[in-house]
Design a protein around this nucleic acid. Structure first.
Lengths: 143, 143
DNA sequence: GTGGTTGCAAAATATTTGCACACTC
DNA sequence: GAGTGTGCAAATATTTTGCAACCAC
């Protein structure tokens, strides 16, 4: 059965143990209906239409909260600062969600090679970058 | 046959049409031998040992130059600002290297599903994020 | 010599934090 | 009422830019 958005968000917060505030509700509603991969600034602009007094800091805090509790994900698992790829061999990445470390694995080991060239939609495929997300050996131990 | 590093770099620069400077040579040498996915700050620290007067701005400029000419790659194709994933369906990304746009494609359409759970090395796999890199339909047209 | 390159300092962008007040539970 | 959440402003972090001196070709 359908739930009113506010009801649905209330349930999500209960599950995650979060307080339900007006700001969080509106940020969640906007995120849920925004297409693509919005930046915090874009979310801020949207939310501001409904809550003119909201601050950008609150949007950042709330997005982090949503990501930390699994309500939304980050589009890019490692976006912080620029990183240079020094390994010229075909390879993919093991990305630890706890310590954020990035480890290379050779392409063959993953056994993935999609088609290159044209695909439906007119996109020209040049290569694939696969991030294998999870938890590294070091972070799985109780340290 | 083996080439001295400086010789090799000279050849690379000739191919790319770049002037060979001491700074560029040292940055290139450091990058080529640094393991992992160094940040500009880390590269700067390394290069500074050899050229104490180098500036961080030069390191940034040079890294961009190397990336633009294809001498090195960026580890993360979309790292600028944080982006929130609002699409809860399993999907992957078409990333255009010209306009930086990110378009979703459903997982089935790519036909990739690797194993989840433990893999050799102790890494716990939770999910895969695939970036399909290339040029989007819009950027292929001569605009 | 000429034009591209570097270093410096300042600017622009992106994100985080401390703190007083306000609101949820 | 207790404790969490919010807004503001300042602090950090990251990356870019303008410009004069300098170096490769």
């Amino acid at each position: 059965m359908l739930m009113h958005a506010a009801e649905q968000f209330r349930a999500i917060c209960e599950e995650a143990g979060l307080a339900v505030t007006h700001q969080r509700l509106v940020i969640w509603e906007k995120l849920a209906t925004m297409p693509g991969h919005p930046s915090p600034e874009e979310v801020y602009a949207q939310v501001k239409e409904e809550i003119p007094s909201i601050s950008l800091a609150t949007v950042y805090k709330t997005i982090h909260l949503f990501v930390d509790t699994g309500i939304f994900r980050e589009a890019s698992p490692h976006h912080g600062s620029m990183r240079v790829e020094t390994n010229h061999e075909p390879h993919h990445h093991l990305v630890c969600r706890v310590c954020k470390s990035i480890t290379d694995i050779p392409s063959e080991q993953l056994g993935f090679g999609g088609p290159l060239g044209d695909v439906p939609g007119g996109f020209l495929v040049e290569r694939y970058a696969v991030d294998v997300l999870g938890i590294c050996a070091g972070c799985r131990k109780p340290a």
